[in-house]
Design a protein around this nucleic acid. Structure first.
Lengths: 151, 151
DNA sequence: TTCGTTGTGATGATTATAGTTACAACACGT
DNA sequence: ACGTGTTGTAACTATAATCATCACAACGAA
């Protein structure tokens, strides 16, 4: 199974808010760039709002960043959009037989390994800020632009 | 979403094969320790067999290890049971708008981060052998046994 | 040849994802 | 105060994966 695209959508949205701060960022507009339905955007944006990463104005509409880019890590987004219940990336089978020595002890041993593996993954996400990601993204955009229309 | 319990079941099965080598390991018997249906066991065992981690005898029945414990990592099991398509732990939304600068470039930038995160997770699994896991498990079992009936 | 077992197809219940429609609540400009 | 455009949500749908279970043919050894 895969981690929901809510995560990538969340990052995409925040990138848009960061790179094009002048626009009126409606869910309709954001949906156009992400390539999905405005309601999907609103739902993800709802998560980002609850996590204090974005501001969304009801009524008049429009979303903005609620924190500095340096202050948002990919892990923040990952947690915000709620793709994996905390500490539960791996699903452990639920009824090992306590009457069997292996069944009675496998869970705690295996959970430790699972936890370490998951922590390593999240550690990478925690080490990358939206600032870094947006900088790389901006460089990509600029490079392509320059390649198409060299001065 | 979570990574399928096929992984934990696979590890459980291999642990049983390692720790109780004298038994006739039928799917029925293994299912008793794992706490599931024999068919589920047979299917996971099928994966382990295909990956060269276990031998299964049709007809007369019974499974055995096909490799030394030192020669099986948790990553081998993880790959064997096919819980995550290679390199695809994260699901990236599929239609970012190529006409938008962000939409056109977010994928390659984000995929790189996702790849690193996933690689870190798999690195931990690759670093743990079934030997190590079984040793820890055996120690747990022995400790509990000793606590119940001290000499 | 009989018996227990494996391998596998088929089915069903459950759960998550992702898209869509619909609409009340809301904010702002006029 | 009103109209317009937007958000927040509920509801519904389609799709897909998981896991348990039944059923049964193919197989192996006594």
């Amino acid at each position: 199974m895969q981690i929901s695209s809510r995560f990538s959508i969340g990052v995409h949205i925040l990138s848009l808010l960061a790179i094009q701060p002048q626009d009126h960022h409606t869910s309709e507009w954001l949906a156009g760039s992400v390539g999905t339905n405005p309601v999907v955007i609103r739902r993800v944006l709802g998560h980002l709002k609850k996590a204090g990463l974005a501001n969304v104005k009801a009524g008049s509409g429009g979303a903005t960043l609620a924190r500095e880019l340096d202050d948002i890590t990919l892990l923040d987004v990952y947690r915000a959009v709620d793709v994996v219940e905390e500490g539960r990336l791996f699903h452990m089978h639920e009824q090992p037989n306590p009457a069997c020595p292996v069944g009675a002890n496998i869970e705690q041993v295996l959970r430790l390994m699972m936890f370490k593996a998951q922590a390593a993954m999240e550690g990478v996400l925690a080490a990358v800020t939206m600032r870094e990601l947006v900088d790389v993204l901006a460089r990509e955009i600029e490079e392509k632009r320059a390649a198409i229309s060299p001065k």
